[in-house]
Design a protein around this nucleic acid. Structure first.
Lengths: 244, 244
DNA sequence: CGGACTATTGAGACTCCTCAACTAACGTGG
DNA sequence: CCACGTTAGTTGAGGAGTCTCAATAGTCCG
């Protein structure tokens, strides 16, 4: 399930155990606030070029030769794969501080699109590899980050294993919910479109729509506008998330 | 999608891009043959204790405090999570050379059971973390390994997103299929039970059974006994795998 | 040769998917 | 600032597929 190595550092440092889902979503709040020291950050930024992209822009395509590793500075990016049938499968939402650009055999395995306007840092992969080789501590941070992604990926797998649409949507909202500790405002931001949610949850657009409607009718979650939600019935919500 | 850093080494070295599915399965054949140098292997073994476990043995449980990181030497291990409803979700099969013991906040996030008799190496996580901190190259190998797991996890997510049982089973078989290049024998080993397959694929036991039967009736895959299969109609098989 | 477990097969209910139409939101331009 | 057009999302009806429950067949043990 997860490979790892681990080492506790500052409080709430996560283990190395592998578990990486290239999904920055919901986890946004869970991730450690500062993974890098000021010096490390400075050195990394020296290797990076900064790009500002409008919404719906392609960062790279599946099959493109690997060139850079990317880090989200601001905005939201989605990583997905397309099939012959035209169906799409989003394998992860990338939030600020998330690293992306997963490759295999020298080629990116997914396509990455911006969802909202975004600020992206790109680092040539050779430069990054060299930097990681020189700085074991920096590499450890990366290892933690990938492990975090693995955990997220497992979470998505668990979510997809559920047979009920309402449960999937509830789990998705739970993933995007800010840490109860950090934020007092229980507002959940949903920057992506319903279609994106459907492609992430493995459901049809209509099923997502019906599930949200049901949650709203039962007064478990209130959707304000199309891009935010709020849990109204905490107990009911958690029981749906926990079930199966 | 995947974070990463990367660096090509010997041929077929994989990138660091994050994408980790704690799933050793099918990927067995895909993984690099030798990730460690003899010296690194020796040093790691010095930290490890060896355990031989019978089939169906619990290695650790979800929620247990993190103590060791594990590596499969021989046999097959499954990592899964259990729900209040009694439903189980297998998030990964661990094959020889796979690392497991994913933790968060000092606790294992999954339960690990042996499927067959297995030889397991266990390394105290502090010792491993220290070793990785000292040896950047070794740490890089771990990073590659976690990245590999992330790719596998994404693959499982893609698989689970498919609505058809036959397609899921076909993808699963594809994952377990040995590299066409390495092995000339197209026999696919299925050490796990049907129930395990069902819990990995997010299907009911019966749906798996019906899917295998359908594949057999269409003469696409031949199942010999309960623990091995062989692709009979390569074109038909690949078209099912690729579809959707 | 039995017995317990695992897997297969069958019948009905339920849920989601597909197709289609309608409504709402957003952006542009007058 | 309002009107229109395009895109995004909601709602409805019917069909396909899986899930559940139940019973049968097969396999691995002792």
């Amino acid at each position: 399930m997860a490979e790892r190595s681990s080492r506790r550092q500052t409080p709430t440092e996560q283990e190395l155990a592998i578990h990486a889902v290239p999904f920055g979503a919901g986890v946004m709040a869970h991730r450690s606030k500062r993974l890098l020291t000021a010096a490390q950050r400075r050195r990394l930024m020296a290797l990076a070029t900064t790009v500002r992209l409008g919404p719906g822009t392609t960062v790279f395509r599946e099959g493109d030769p690997l060139s850079d590793i990317f880090v989200v500075g601001e905005g939201l990016v989605k990583a997905f794969r397309e099939f012959a049938s035209g169906r799409r499968r989003i394998v992860g939402f990338l939030f600020p501080r998330d690293v992306f650009g997963l490759a295999e055999h020298g080629r990116y395995v997914n396509t990455a699109h911006t969802v909202t306007q975004s600020l992206i840092y790109r680092i040539p992969h050779e430069s990054l590899a060299a930097a990681l080789q020189r700085d074991a501590d920096l590499q450890f941070r990366f290892l933690c980050k990938v492990t975090e992604k693995l955990r997220e990926a497992q979470r998505q797998a668990i979510l997809l294993g559920r047979p009920d649409a309402i449960g999937r949507v509830a789990m998705f909202l739970k993933m995007l919910e800010p840490d109860s500790a950090s934020t007092r405002d229980p507002l959940i931001a949903l920057p992506m479109r319903r279609t994106d949610i459907a492609e992430y949850l493995g459901l049809s657009l209509e099923a997502v729509s019906r599930a949200t409607r049901t949650l709203a009718l039962r007064k478990i979650v209130a959707f304000v506008g199309r891009h935010s939600a709020r849990v109204r019935d905490r107990a009911g919500f958690e029981s749906i998330v926990a079930a199966a």
